[in-house]
Simulated assay, not measured.
Amino acid sequence: MFIPETVKKAVDTYMSLSHKLLPDYQLELFIHGSIGLNTYESNKSDIDCIIVTNPELTLDQKEILNQLHLQFEQQENIPMDCVYIAKADLSSQSPFLNTYFYYNEGTLSYGDYFNFNPVTWWTLHQNYQDPPFPTTTGSQLRDYVFQNMQQYWKPYIERLKREVQLDLSISDEEIKEEIEWIVLGLLRQFYTLKEVGVTSKYDAGIYGLQHLPKQWHPIIQLAIRIRKNELVVVSVETMNQVIDFAEFLISYCEKLKSTD
């Protein structure tokens, strides 16, 4: 895993602040997400990480954690997206079933955490030697991604299709967000099902251009251009093209998985 100098500096700042504000706690920081995939984008990527604590943080530390992240953001310009989990919890019979502190989009929360999954574990094991997290087989990774496609993406596309048919107003910026989210998100899952691995949104777009019929290349190229913050023109008709692409790719992946 290549860690850019700006990220190294930010991590050093965070660790220094944690030692100052939480002197009785030992913290270990494990990076995943785009940095773990070697696709960090300046001014766009977060520092996605899991922070293992010893001992366990309690609700009494909430204000201290708020101060830690506030001071971090005053010193660094890279957002952190992290969760705190106790070292003892990792060795329990039922880890990841508790409630946790997590920091996302500038807010510290306490509750169920959403990012403990085989994609995260796979990425961590690719980048750290014997990390204290569950191992994931290729079969488990593919099963998880396919289940997510069925339970999240399929209903999401069906709902979006109804909204477009009802001609609900949607801004150009919202359309661009949907294009990038849907096209590149589904292509990441297509990559996992085909290659038994994890890739970034941008690289998934390139993979789609290499492995899918040419009729879908324009919408994939559009999603890549949006990802790169290039100027593009979109319309509600573009959303219909995205829906057609999503339905095609979900069906394609269902056939692919049925051959297992």
Rank of each mutant, 00 (worst) to 15 (best):
Y113F: 13
I64W: 04
P79Y: 08
L124N: 00
N66G: 11
L65A: 05
K62D: 09
V119A: 04
V83M: 00
N117T: 03
C82F: 12
L70E: 13
L97Q: 15
N117L: 06
W122R: 10
D60R: 15
Y100C: 03
Y113H: 11
D81M: 11
A86D: 00
E76A: 03
F96T: 00
N77K: 15
P132D: 03
Q93T: 14
T137M: 06
T120W: 06
S91C: 09
Q61F: 06
H69D: 06
Q75W: 02
I85L: 00
T120M: 15
V52E: 02
V83R: 00
T107G: 10
A88D: 15
F96N: 05
P79T: 10
T135G: 05
F114N: 14
L57W: 02
Q140V: 02
Q71E: 15
L65I: 05
E63H: 12
S91N: 11
A86L: 04
Q93Y: 12
Q93P: 09
Q71F: 13
T58P: 07
S109E: 13
N66V: 07
P131M: 10
L59C: 08
N115A: 13
K62A: 11
Y113D: 05
Q61S: 08
F116A: 05
F116M: 01
T58L: 03
V52C: 02
Q140K: 08
P79N: 07
E105W: 11
D60P: 13
E73L: 11
T99Y: 08
L65D: 01
V119P: 03
C82T: 14
A86R: 02
T120Y: 07
T107P: 10
E76K: 05
C82S: 14
G111T: 04
K87V: 05
K62T: 14
I85F: 01
P134T: 05
Q140I: 05
S91A: 12
E73P: 05
Q74F: 11
F96R: 01
Y84D: 08
F114R: 12
F116C: 04
F96V: 02
I64Y: 04
F101H: 02
I64H: 03
D89I: 01
E73F: 12
Y84E: 09
Q129L: 13
N98P: 05
Q93N: 12
Q140E: 15
R142D: 12
Q74G: 09
Y102V: 04
S91P: 00
F101P: 00
S109Y: 10
L141K: 08
Q67I: 13
L108M: 02
T107F: 15
T99G: 03
T135C: 09
P55V: 00
L141A: 08
Y128M: 05
Q126D: 09
S94L: 15
A86W: 01
L141P: 06
D112L: 14
L124P: 00
D130T: 12
K62L: 12
P95D: 08
N104P: 08
S139K: 15
Y128T: 04
T120F: 01
Y144N: 02
D89S: 06
Q75I: 00
D89V: 01
